[in-house]
Simulated assay, not measured.
Amino acid sequence: MAWHQFSVITNEDTAPLLADFFSDLGAVSVTYMDAEDEPVYEPAIGQTVIWSNTQVIALFELDAADPEQVKTQVYARFDHSLLQTWHYEPVEDQVWERAWMEYYQPMKFADKLWVCPTGQEQQEDHTVCLTLDPGLAFGTGTHPTTALCLEWLASHDLAGKTVIDFGCGSGILAIAAVLLGAKEAHAIDIDPQALTATQDNALKNNVTDKIHCYLPEQFTPRKADVVLANILAKPLIDLSSNIISLVGEDGQLVLSGILAEQADAVISSYQTSIAFTSPTQQEDWIRLDGNMR
């Protein structure tokens, strides 16, 4: 199946009106993209980010719209000076996860841990291999925030330890910990789809008996040898007391999802309880790790 795809750049005030108009014309989806590389960090839950210059992209079924008529109606409705870079193209349907996997290759962390898509598993002495495909939840190891955590896990002795993965996403960190020798991992997330993804990935990696999944209200707080929280700076700060309470005596804490300029604010929320090592940086992101004082 093919689709009509229209895109146009406009300002932050007009973008929602244009999106609504595309929907009224029959668009099956309308999305926003940043048109000028303007970063927006950590929008509130339920907030839709609108940039100063926003690209509005609308997708129509092939037999439900005429490209020239759509353009004519849009230009009749809005001031032409507000519409920039009108673009139309037909788009062929495809299996998006498989298309993306062309760019997802095996990755190795600390010469000990492989993360590989299905069919590209690596068999190498003195390493373990975690099989993971793009799916419903965040976390394949390609993003610096996840890579920083995987590098930490693969660099430490986890034999027999209990791990908590706070904000588990795809479950990649919990599963990696178990494959690297952890006794068990407790995976917590506010999104039920994340727990579904974690359970599916645990099954794929034959570790379902050692991975325990919870929504926050289902989790009974407990102490762990290693606590991982790869989320974002604001929730790390807001939930600092909750996260610290999970770290056992002599336990270790690993925090990620933090931009370099946010490090000091996060450190200040934890430093009375956690002795951090120097931050580890990859691109614009840093990892904080340390031990209970």
Rank of each mutant, 00 (worst) to 15 (best):
D200M: 09
L288H: 09
L232R: 06
P90Q: 14
D63C: 04
L259P: 00
W152Y: 15
E151M: 11
P134G: 05
W100L: 00
A185E: 03
I258R: 01
L228Y: 06
Q73T: 05
L236R: 10
W51N: 10
I57K: 11
D289Y: 14
A110T: 01
L239R: 05
Q123H: 12
L17P: 11
A229W: 02
D79I: 01
P39I: 01
T162W: 08
I172K: 06
T145R: 00
D20N: 13
Q47N: 13
D284Q: 15
P221C: 02
D63N: 11
A224W: 06
L132V: 14
C129H: 02
S273C: 08
I190P: 06
H87V: 05
T54L: 03
L246P: 02
P279R: 03
H156K: 14
A265M: 09
L232H: 04
F109E: 07
C129W: 06
G169A: 04
E151W: 06
P221M: 08
Q218T: 08
L18I: 12
A110C: 07
R98D: 15
N205S: 01
V28A: 02
E97L: 14
L153A: 02
A182V: 08
L62G: 00
A263S: 15
D79P: 00
L153W: 04
Q5W: 10
G135S: 07
T14R: 07
A2F: 13
P39C: 00
P235C: 02
P117D: 10
A147K: 03
E102I: 05
A159C: 13
T272V: 08
A15D: 12
E261S: 12
V227E: 07
N291G: 08
W3I: 10
G181E: 08
